Structure formats: C-alpha cells, structure tokens
Amino acid sequence: MEITSATYTTHAKAIILGEHSIVYRGSAIVAPVPVLAITVTATINSSTAPSYDFDGSAISRDQIANYYPGIDEALNSFPLPEGLSLSLTIRSTIPESRGLGSSAASANSAVRAIYRAIKNLTYFSEGIRLQRPHLSDLDTIVARCEDRVHGRASGLDQCGVTADCTCLFTSDRNGLPPMITTLPNLNAYLVVADTGIIKNTKASVAAIKRRISAKDPQVYSAIETLSSISDSLKDRWTHNHLEEIGASMNRAQEILSSLSLSLPELDRLISLLRENGALGAKLSGGGCGGICIGLFRDIDKADAAVEGIQKHECQAWRISI
C-alpha cells in the first residue's frame, strides 16, 4: 500500500568548452539543456515489494546496479526500516551515454525525489524516528553517485544539470572545492546534435590519462592549450564577443580531433552546423561519439541547422544561451 510519494525533475547539460582539460586543471563552460530531462518519482510503500519502472519497462534491482549505478547508489543512501519499501518510476528524454549528463541528471532526480518522499513520511518504530540525510548532504550524495559511475567525477556534469544558466566551472584551486560562476545570457542560440553513437567518457578520459602518464608531449600541449582557451573565455563571454567565442570553439575542436576524440559522424554534423551558419562548432563531452554543438547568433539559422540535421536522421535541439 502506498504511503507517500514525491517527484523531482532534472535537465540535461552540454559542455561548451573545457572537456578533458577540466580533469586536470583550469575552467570549463557548461550550459543547461532544459528541453531534455529525467523525472523520478519515489514511492514509499508498506507490505509491498519494491519495483522499478524505467520508461514503462520493469527492471530489477540487479539491472539498476549494472546499468544505472548512480541510481543504485542513491537507493543505497536512503535505507528504510523493515516493513517499508521504496519504488522508483523513471521517465527520461535524455539520450544515454551521449555527453548530455544523463547519469548526473538521473542521480540528482533520484536522490531528491527519495529525500522528498522520506521527508513527507512521518514514521515511528518503537519510538525511534526515521532517520534521513540533511538537505545540505544531498549534493554530496549525488557526487558519490557520480563517482560510482565515472570513477572520480570532476563535478562538472553535476553543476551543469542543476544550473539554471550557463556557468564557468573552475577546478584546481589548491584543494578547495570548485568555484562556480554564473555567466550572462549571450542572447544567442546553441544547437545540440546527437550522432546516436554511444560513447564512454570514462574510457576516453582514461585513454588521455595513459598518454599523459607516458609523457606524450602532444597530449601535454593539447591539454595546456584547451585549458588556456577555456580560462580566457570568461571576458569574451561577459562582453558578448560571439565571433571570438565561436573561433575558440573551432580551435578546441581541432585540438580534440588531434587527440583522436572525434569521429567521422561527429565531423559530418559539425560541418553541417558550420554550413548552416554556426559561428563555432565542436564535439561536446568525452568524444568518440555522443553529441556536438554549434553556436548561432540568429534563431532562424539555428532552426535551419536543426532541420538540416534531422533530415540526416539525427536528433537535434535548439536552446537559448
């Protein structure tokens, strides 16, 4: 029997600049993608076995542990007393493993939906009140969920899926937590295009790390340049220098491609974005699949780019930034 339930929705994100280099130091720019989101409903039942519904399909707890470890970690973080069970219903429009932050978004929605459901619950057992984490602990739990997925997450995805606007994310601050700075609206548009190819961020990051460990001079130089590009973009963004931002995106794509992180499918979509008027276009996220992005000043050109990409049987979305 259902006792209480709660729902939480988290949107997707897209990294504009700074992927890979942010793992080591410097800054990255990340934008929310509100047209894509994941909603989790947490239901607390009595005398009922837990159930898990992902987009209309029943899945087991073992399947959650194997395929959605962030959600599994969220479930582990909220133990319930005997006699109560926790069920989840998950609805998502975020393509998985594409660089859109699906793992961070699902973990954030699961953690906050479960927290709200428990907060709604007044339960006493032999005079002991049900324990629940404090609201201030939730970000830490989500970070732990992300570490479960990625090994050691930078926090950039978590920032992007919870932000209301574009943010500058700065790490490597002598052991201090990352600094997050909100950036002004550019009155411009970002087109997000999906190759449909599943990518593995953890594997891509590990491949770059191996080359750095082997003291590969090309990778050292590439990471330094990517960091410099991201670090220098704050002033250009603040002063709405769209052409310079676009040029920085194009330069970043050249470097990421030189690290074997692009693919012909990504290159094709990036070319389509530029042909349709993008000031700059590049892959976004771990690379080797997933998404690419294009920056547009004009909404009509952005919409034309979306239409052109969809004609090539790929998904695309336009957002304001």
Score class of each variant (00 low, 15 high):
A278Q: 11
E224H: 14
G83V: 01
S77T: 06
Y220M: 15
A281C: 10
R61I: 05
D231E: 13
L84W: 06
P34Y: 00
V40R: 05
D194S: 11
L88I: 07
S258M: 05
E126P: 01
G101L: 09
K119I: 01
L17R: 04
S258D: 08
I321S: 03
L168H: 06
I223R: 08
Q315E: 15
T140K: 12
R236V: 04
T10F: 00
I22G: 02
I29T: 05
G308N: 15
I255V: 01
S47C: 00
I15P: 12
V30H: 06
H134T: 06
T170L: 04
A105E: 06
G127N: 13
Q310W: 00
S257Q: 14
Y123P: 06
A14P: 13
G26E: 04
Y68I: 00
L263E: 13
G280T: 05
R129H: 10
S77F: 07
N45M: 06
N276P: 00
I44S: 00
G160Y: 11
T140G: 13
C145H: 14
E19H: 01
R318V: 11
G280E: 05
S27G: 07
Q158S: 13
D72P: 01
Q131S: 09
I141G: 01
D303Y: 07
R144M: 10
D147F: 09
I38A: 11
N185I: 08
T238E: 14
I44N: 01
L233M: 15
T166G: 03
R91S: 08
I29S: 04
A107T: 14
I3E: 02
A304N: 12
P32A: 06
A14S: 13
P264F: 04
G294S: 13
D172E: 09
T182Y: 04
T9H: 11
W237Y: 12
F54T: 02
L183N: 00
V219D: 03
Q310M: 08
W317A: 09
V306N: 12
A104K: 10
P69N: 07
A31K: 01
E254M: 07
L138M: 06
S230K: 04
I22H: 03
L36H: 09
T9E: 11
I180T: 13
R132M: 12
I59T: 02
S27M: 02
V192G: 12
I180N: 03
A247T: 07
P79M: 12
N120R: 13
Y115N: 14
D55H: 03
A28M: 07
V306H: 09
G70I: 05
S5E: 09
G83Y: 08
I94F: 13
Q310R: 14
A304R: 15
G290W: 06
K311Y: 06
A49E: 08
R91I: 04
G175K: 04
I29P: 04
S125Q: 15
L261G: 10
R91W: 00
W317H: 15
D303V: 13
T9P: 08
N120V: 02
L279S: 01
A105Q: 10
D194N: 15
I22A: 01
T43S: 11
A107D: 14
K282F: 00
E96S: 13
N185G: 04
L176T: 00
A302G: 15
A206P: 02
Y8K: 09
E19I: 09
S154V: 07
S204L: 10
